[in-house]
Each structure stands twice: as structure tokens, then as C-alpha cells.
Design a protein around this nucleic acid. Structure first.
Length: 214
DNA sequence: ATCATGATTTACT
DNA sequence: GTAAATCATGATT
């Protein structure tokens, strides 16, 4: 990842399938009045805009997904399943509505605060293992939707992984939760994770999640 | 270990 | 009404 803000912006302003694997090992940090939590990304997914049936942008712009259509380097936080928030990093170019969903990571700073936010976590590896867990551990909610990661608005920032061990090999596979009839049928291997990392969420092949229905 | 279920917003049919 | 980029919990294997 480049060092300067403008270079970073350009680096992110590519299709999410290029940006996503490069983000593995990078660190997302959020600081607020309660303190700071930083997470080293170990699992992400790419969403590719209005042509991607698994993307929120598939049916065009709505109030919820509006930031996806904007500039790269901003945070897209959405509320889902009536109870959870999930966070994405918006990629580019502008108008393509592509983004990277942060699916899992390792808490590398502020574990105490992360545990306070996630009392249900039984171990450190569970603090940010899963997209809604990660958003929760970082303290990301509605009010941070649209903030700029590169200017530090809202206390959220993105940095390279210099001080951490060199990533193991990157594995790819179908995205989680979008393989059903409305999704891509598992055609696109747009989920990326660090092979063997314990904070990668468990992949549930063929286990189709259903809403409450009968 | 795996499975079933409930919590309940947003957006589309 | 129904499905969705989910998670915690409690039952069962």
C-alpha cells in the first residue's frame, strides 16, 4: 500500500477484486472517546457493482448503498438482519459501486475495549471472526457510514501491515451467503483469506441461510 | 462437533 | 410477504 493519501486513494480506486487480496494483512483502526481498536484483516470479499448479483448495488442506488457509488477510500457501513452492522471499504473507479467487505481479522490493538464491545466472544480469535463481529469489535455503526478512511474522519484509518508478519499465502473461494438463487451461484471466487489463519470465519458450503419463513 | 431458531431492517415483488 | 453480504444460543450427535 502506498504511503501518501492521494496515492492510497488511487490504489483503492481499482475494482474490488484487485484491491481485496492486497488488503489482507492491512490494519483498520478506529479511535473514539472509549479508546482505540485496530484489526489486521485476514478475510475479505469483493463486491463488483451493478452487474454483481450478490451486491447491494445490483439494483441501483438506494439511500442505504449510496456511499458505494461514491469515491474510493470511504467506509460503507450497513445494517442487516435486523441486528448487525457490516463494514466495507469502497473501491473504484467512481460510478462502479465496487467495495470490499471486511469479513474477519485479528485484534492487534485495544483488545480490552474490543472485549467490552463483544462480551459474547469466548476467545481473542472470536472478537472479529465474521463481518458483523468485526464491525462490532471496531465500534463501527450507522454514524460512521461514509467516513473517509484516508483523512481520518470519524477516527477511522487504514494502514499497511508493516510491523506484522508477512502474510501467508492468500486463498480464494466463493463468497459467503450469496450463493443462493439471487446470488452468483458461487461462480465467482471473490472471497479472499489468509490461509490457515485462525480468525478466518468458517466456510459453510451448501448451508444456505434462510430467513424465518415457512 | 453440527443443527435449528430467533432477533427484526431494508428493499424488492 | 420474503430474502438477505449474520450471530448467539440451546439442543442434539
Amino acid at each position: 500500500m502506498p504511503a501518501s493519501q492521494s496515492e492510497k486513494r488511487r490504489w483503492l480506486a481499482r475494482p474490488a477484486t484487485e484491491v481485496a487480496p492486497a488488503l489482507l494483512g492491512c490494519v483498520v483502526r478506529h479511535e473514539d472517546d472509549d479508546g482505540a481498536v485496530a484489526i489486521r484483516l485476514t478475510e475479505v470479499e469483493a463486491y463488483m457493482g451493478s452487474d454483481d448479483p450478490g451486491s447491494h448495488a445490483f439494483r441501483g442506488q438506494t439511500p442505504r448503498n449510496a456511499v458505494m457509488f461514491g469515491d474510493a477510500g470511504h467506509l460503507y457501513v450497513y445494517f442487516t438482519y435486523g441486528m448487525h452492522f457490516c463494514a466495507n471499504i469502497v473501491c473504484g473507479p467512481v460510478g462502479l459501486a465496487t467495495a470490499v467487505l471486511l469479513r474477519g481479522g485479528e485484534v492487534v490493538e485495544g483488545e480490552e475495549l474490543a472485549r467490552k464491545r463483544r462480551p459474547a466472544a469466548r476467545s481473542a480469535r472470536d472478537l472479529a471472526r465474521g463481518p458483523a463481529r468485526l464491525a462490532s469489535a471496531l465500534g463501527l455503526g450507522r454514524e460512521l457510514n461514509g467516513v473517509d478512511l484516508l483523512t481520518g474522519t470519524g477516527g477511522v484509518s487504514l494502514d499497511a501491515a508493516n510491523e506484522y508478519p508477512e502474510p501467508r499465502s492468500v486463498a480464494t473461494g466463493p463468497r459467503v451467503g450469496v450463493a443462493g438463487k439471487g446470488g452468483d451461484g458461487g461462480r465467482f471466487p471473490w472471497r479472499y483469506w489468509l490461509e490457515g489463519d485462525p480468525t478466518v470465519s468458517r466456510y459453510r458450503p451448501g448451508n444456505v441461510r434462510r430467513g424465518r419463513s415457512l
